[in-house]
Design a binder for these strands. Structure first.
Lengths: 162, 162
DNA sequence: AAGTAGTATGTTATAAAGTAACAGAAAGTT
DNA sequence: AACTTTCTGTTACTTTATAACATACTACTT
């Protein structure tokens, strides 16, 4: 799987394939059921490196038959709980996890211009947050870190425009 | 203003007063209008060190006459833009800013048990996130950091329960 | 292979969070 | 006072998410 910020359209099938392979493996190992619906939704989420809204997913499903919100949300719940996707709180949207199975904080960078998202996995950030919390006597259970700004590609385009 | 995690009920009026005084000063300096409605909502938000939902505020307003969502949201927009309150993305809720006027990232610790919230202002965390993003060539515009876990007080109670 | 327990999905209705658009009121300016 | 700008009221609506119950599928037991 290439880096989201440098993944081009013709490379992208690899990302989807890799994500599905990883999902199959994880579900086999943890005795979870990757049903057709779950596989479908996971695939849809991986169609781009952008977060996708629940109702976007619903709309796509509805083009191929009837579907209602709970179907989507239940499937998302499964994917979230099994760690195959994460939720982007600042945008009420969902995106595929790049390292399912591995315990990690799920910090992300998200581009305000093209909306491409990348998970960063900075142990330094995690530690620094833990340390800051610790100074308050606070016990950290979950870190939500969502950084918005400009991805390298959009930055370059912005420069050229000047 | 005492630390949220150690602020007791009988100290708390100081927090509200301090917040209002700071708000008045900020609005005077920046030629913003702290109208009765805005002052009212800000006061309601400061009634506790917990984040408050927009519809909670609405419900309170409705006990003293008619009110509708846009009234609340517009007022929140003003308070957000002027930096007097922040929004907690992970909970769709709002809380008073402890250092309005000063430029800062607005990182928070929030207790899963008692829901008390504290702004942390760790320059180290900010720098570490900037550095991590920089390694990707990503230009940071906004950092959202929301850490959930157990505050010192609830931690102690959890210990006693054992 | 039939029964059954558990898990997954379909379906209807509704809750919770947030916004658009226009009308009227208050404040600030000339 | 006339005018402009800003603020608030009001109605209607959009978006996001969930509750509750019905049906279908899977996997295990015998």
């Amino acid at each position: 799987m290439s880096q989201p910020f440098s993944c081009s359209h013709d490379q992208h099938d690899h990302c989807v394939d890799a994500a599905l392979t990883a999902a199959e493996r994880l579900c086999r190992e943890q005795r979870l059921r990757l049903t057709p619906l779950r596989r479908k939704i996971l695939t849809l989420i991986w169609q781009s490196h952008r977060p996708v809204g629940a109702y976007d997913l619903l709309e796509i499903l509805q083009k191929e038959g009837r579907a209602a919100p709970p179907t989507v949300y239940r499937t998302l719940d499964f994917l979230l709980e099994s760690g195959l996707v994460h939720r982007l709180a600042t945008r009420n949207a969902y995106f595929g996890c790049t390292r399912p199975g591995q315990d990690h904080a799920g910090h992300v960078l998200i581009c305000e211009s093209c909306h491409v998202l990348a998970e960063i996995d900075s142990a330094d950030v995690v530690r620094q947050i833990d340390a800051s919390a610790d100074a308050f006597g606070f016990e950290v259970r979950r870190q939500t870190v969502e950084v918005s700004g400009l991805c390298p590609r959009c930055r370059q385009e912005a420069d050229h425009a000047c």
